[in-house]
């Protein structure tokens, strides 16, 4: 029996969870839009830069986190509701189960942020170009890496009910120490140089810069290979975390 079949089903279930209600999805999208249109517009009036143009790509990148963390939340629910034990009885290895959840995160992030990207393109028409294809591919790669971050949060929060609290903190760290919301020069003047290196290596920075690179007015610090490398590192960390979590459930019956 093919393990691929089980993988596909697990991925489908994960995606089904994120896109489970049109209400929730509409709400999330409208929130991101209000971020772009309200916060972006108002901040533009009190800031020294055209914040709307800077911020719209940032919102697209932040959307990846929303989707990837929600898939992580699905795994968390699986742990607390006992479904992971059911998965353990299915013909799929622990490693492929881990990979399935990471791919789910990649797909959920790409689909969700793809919608945001489409909206951002209405605001910033120069985004619509051939560069969209590598951008979407990068979104998938980064989103899988963020799935790895969700795995780490799952490991930290265990079977307790703190998943979202920890997720909020981790999300804030990744978004805050990136150029998603602020340009790198504003960060450099406040943050120690060692953390600035983290900002540059952060895959969110790389993706935000990749999107901004297609805007004629924006200067970027894009290093495309760093995006792949840093996302892969996060993916591997996530893979190890999920493998560990599932092995623990297999060994002890719980995390």
């Amino acid at each position: 029996m093919s393990q691929a079949r089980v993988m596909l089903r697990v991925i489908r279930v994960d995606l089904g969870y994120f896109f489970r209600t049109k209400w929730l999805l509409l709400t999330l999208i409208s929130l991101n839009l209000s971020d772009m249109l309200v916060a972006g517009l108002v901040y533009t009036k009190i800031m020294s830069i055209d914040y709307l143009t800077f911020f719209a790509p940032g919102v697209v990148v932040a959307g990846l986190f929303t989707a990837s963390l929600d898939v992580g939340r699905r795994v968390h629910l699986g742990l607390t509701e006992g479904v992971i034990q059911y998965y353990m009885s299915l013909p799929i290895s622990v490693k492929l189960l881990a990979v399935s959840h990471l791919i789910s995160a990649g797909l959920a992030g790409t689909i969700y942020s793809g919608i945001l990207l489409a909206v951002a393109s209405l605001l910033l028409p120069s985004l619509i170009s051939l560069s969209l294809i590598p951008i979407v591919a990068s979104m998938f790669v980064v989103s899988m890496g963020l799935g790895g971050v969700a795995a780490v949060i799952n490991l930290i929060s265990g079977s307790g009910d703190r998943y979202w609290q920890f997720a909020e903190g981790v999300q804030s760290l990744f978004l805050g120490f990136s150029t998603v919301f602020y340009p790198v020069y504003a960060i450099k003047s406040v943050i120690p140089s060692s953390i600035v290196n983290f900002v540059k290596l952060n895959p969110l920075t790389q993706l935000a810069e990749e999107i901004r690179a297609s805007l004629p007015t924006e200067h970027t610090i894009l290093q495309p290979y760093e995006l792949v490398v840093s996302s892969f590192v996060l993916f591997m960390i996530g893979f190890l975390c999920y493998s560990y979590i599932f092995s623990e459930v297999n060994k002890r019956g719980k995390l």
């Binding site: 009190i46 609290q165 805050g176 406040v190």
Partner: peptide, 30 residues
């Protein structure tokens, strides 16, 4: 959870001293 309460204070500190300081660099009219 003492850890969680402490974490929430640290999180506040991070937002205030790091993100607050960064964004203050960009705001010119307040």
């Amino acid at each position: 959870s003492v850890v969680y309460v402490s974490y929430s204070w640290l999180y506040f500190g991070l937002q205030f001293f790091a993100y607050g300081a960064i964004i203050t660099n960009l705001v010119v009219s307040v």
